[in-house]
Write a protein that binds this DNA or RNA. Structure first.
Length: 607
RNA sequence: GGAGCCGUAGUUAAGUUGGUUAUAACGCCGGCCUGUCACGCCGGAGGCCGAGGGUUCGAGUCCCUUCGGCUCCGCCA
């Protein structure tokens, strides 16, 4: 066999050069037919290399896009020869001339697809190891790899796009709030641990050994202080910290658009918030959301959707039928605190296997099972449970649900919170599975009239549903002492496509009302003074009526991007175990550091 | 604290009832190639089957433990 011609070692061509005063003239999405003939300087990474031996094509990538550059032996033999050594993710600076691609060679898939840049001179600014995964949108590496090499993952156009949108949204927020008189004020990150709410992240104090700061769960009390200060309108795009377990839409550190206003009621905060959200939509998706946003009370949301953040992009609803089955021969329904049904049009097509799957699904929420009735084409009811129904019960059920041939009815019966959660979440699963959701639509919705307090069976006391500084509805403030469980709050959530993206309230601004609230929560005077003394003091010095709202920026951006997780819109997110695979945080610290802080670990971690 | 899914070349995956030398595609390395655009063609290298233990004549496959990733329940005012 003809001996291998000497295999070449290209390393001699891989000499890294200095930028040497070169300046970039364009990004890689900018050049079009209008630039033909221009001399340009481009910089970026090698996306694809197509080496024909003669001609070499490189797609040069930067944050903005791709441009095809051509190395031709006729143009510059030396540059062409050296270009054989180029590999994926090498960093290049090229000087060349923009020219039209030959007839029929345009690439309609690229903004720059009509042209190419023929290289006259280039510098290799850096080489690259072969990346552990391809830097492309269509190839998805495992998430652990992506997070370990997040700096490479972030080179992918889809992520660059997410972060550009996030940036635009943040700019729109600042512009909008600045225009209507809000001041951006920073608040401390090292602050005080407060009872109530989420678990705090603690930071030990070296100067005050044995004492700890807490990272803020939100700047709630600071923004109220700013209102007392007469700051009038405050906002901040700010990190918040909650040491709770993670979800696809929850990270231990996350970003809020935090807003507070003086001399306002609910309507004024909501109007402002709608203006903010519509401005964000306009400046990111170029989409006009109709205002005012629809409103729904918490009670109605629970009644019709079983959850307090309904996805109203599709129209399935729940109906209560507890009354129909009071005293029924079907004991499962007769003895239940709540019986609810959901009519799913066309659902009779669901297979037994699918229904079994949904039965498993509702068990997640503590449900004991999933009863169902299929209405066949001839109107006959097929079901494991109808044989237990009386004729009256059947008639009442048919009347209330208006079930039609081809429908399926799903039932939940039992403890109210479980039945609601099970059926409400099944509703969302079915909406997805049956293609009832138009992914291109956005359905904002205000949820209002939340209960002020919730009974905590573990602690055997009421806890604040929103937070302890939320005002009750004026007509119920007096009743707070006599009938705390039924008081409604001046609180509101903004729900978007089934996600809670914002929440706020009108706050308590007199010490008398705040004391009543603490009392209702079982916080005695001494504890109130210890934990919230500064708040009590502030309320005594002419606190104006005030209220506000906070938006979960990560969630909002996730929805705007169509992403499945907020990790796709956070540059360096944590895993479900709250670790960072790139930096390997959290980590152990040197004994010296612990000594300085006056901390000794209870159990020495071996090795 | 709990439930479920997953972990096999660099990557993404296949791997039957436990049975020869663990597959494929992409990527990587080398050769050829002047109009490709996820270039093409030829050749080649590459494996602690997450880790540890067990069952067995024999384990990627079965069992136990453990580590890691994801989804969810609890939790998250």
């Amino acid at each position: 066999m003809s001996e291998h011609q000497d295999e070449r070692d290209y390393d001699e061509y891989r000499v890294i050069e200095d930028l040497g005063g070169w300046r970039r003239s364009h990004h890689n999405n900018e050049l079009t037919a209008a630039n033909i003939g221009e001399s340009v300087t481009l910089m970026g990474w090698v996306q694809f290399r197509r080496d024909h031996g003669g001609l070499i094509f490189i797609d040069l990538r930067d944050r903005e896009g791709l441009t095809q550059v051509v190395f031709s032996p006729e143009q510059d033999g030396d540059a062409h020869e050296r270009a054989h050594a180029l590999r994926t993710e090498y960093v290049l600076a090229i000087k060349g001339t923009v020219r039209s691609r030959p007839e029929g060679m345009a690439n309609a898939g690229l903004v720059t697809g009509e042209i190419e840049v023929v290289v006259e001179e280039y510098k290799l600014l850096n080489t690259s190891d072969t990346p552990p995964f391809a830097i492309e949108d269509r190839l998805e590496a495992g998430e652990n790899l992506r997070l370990k090499y997040r700096f490479l993952d972030l080179r992918r156009p889809i992520l660059a796009k997410n972060f550009k949108l996030r940036h635009k949204a943040a700019q729109a927020v600042r512009r909008y709030l600045d225009d209507i008189g809000f001041l951006e004020v920073e608040t401390p990150v090292l602050t005080k641990s407060t009872p109530e709410g989420a678990r705090d992240f603690l930071v030990p104090s070296r100067v005050n050994q044995g004492q700890f700061y807490a990272l803020p769960q939100s700047p709630q009390l600071f923004k109220q202080m700013l209102m007392v200060s007469g700051m009038d309108r405050y906002y901040q795009i700010v990190k918040c910290f909650r040491d709770e377990d993670l979800r696809a839409d929850r990270q231990p550190e996350f970003t809020q658009i935090d807003i507070e206003m003086s001399f306002v009621d609910e309507q004024m905060v909501q109007d402002m918030a709608e203006g903010l959200v519509t401005s964000v939509f306009r400046n990111t998706l170029d989409m006009d959301l109709p205002t005012p946003f629809p409103r729904m009370t918490y009670a109605d949301a629970m009644r019709d959707y079983g959850v307090d953040k309904p996805d109203v992009r599709f129209d399935l609803k729940l109906q209560e039928v507890t009354d129909i089955f009071k005293g029924s021969g079907f004991k499962v329904f007769a003895g239940a605190e709540l019986v609810k049904v959901m009519r799913v049009p066309g659902g009779a097509e669901l297979s037994r296997k699918e229904i079994d799957e949904y039965t498993k699904f509702v068990e997640i929420y503590g449900s004991k099972g999933l009863a169902w009735i299929k209405v066949k084409e001839d109107g006959e009811w097929q079901s494991p449970i109808v044989k237990f129904f009386s004729d009256d019960e059947r008639a009442a059920l048919a009347d209330r649900t208006q079930a039609q041939p081809g429908d399926i009815l799903f039932f939940q019966a039992g403890q109210a919170d479980i039945a609601n959660a099970a059926l409400g979440n099944l509703r969302c699963k079915l909406g997805e599975r049956l293609g009832l959701i138009d992914e291109s639509t956005f359905a904002p919705l205000w949820i209002t009239d939340f209960p002020l307090l919730e009974w905590d069976p573990d602690e055997k006391r009421y806890v604040a549903r929103h937070h302890p500084f939320t005002s009750a509805k004026p007509e119920q403030m007096a009743a707070l002492e006599s009938d705390p469980g039924n008081a409604l709050a001046r609180a509101y959530d903004l729900v978007l496509n089934g996600f809670e993206v914002g929440g706020g309230s009108i706050r308590i601004h007199t010490p008398e009302q705040q004391e009543i609230m603490f009392k209702a929560l079982g916080i005695d005077e001494q504890e109130a003074r210890e934990k919230f003394g500064f708040l009590m003091d502030a309320l005594r010095f002419g606190a104006p009526p005030h209220g506000g709202i906070a938006f979960g920026l990560d969630r909002l951006i996730m929805i705007l991007c169509g992403a499945k997780s907020i990790r796709e819109v956070i540059a360096f997110p944590k895993t479900q175990k709250a670790t960072c695979l790139m930096t390997e945080a959290p980590g152990e610290v040197a004994n010296k550091q612990l000594r300085e802080l006056g901390i000794r670990l209870r159990e020495k971690v071996q090795e």
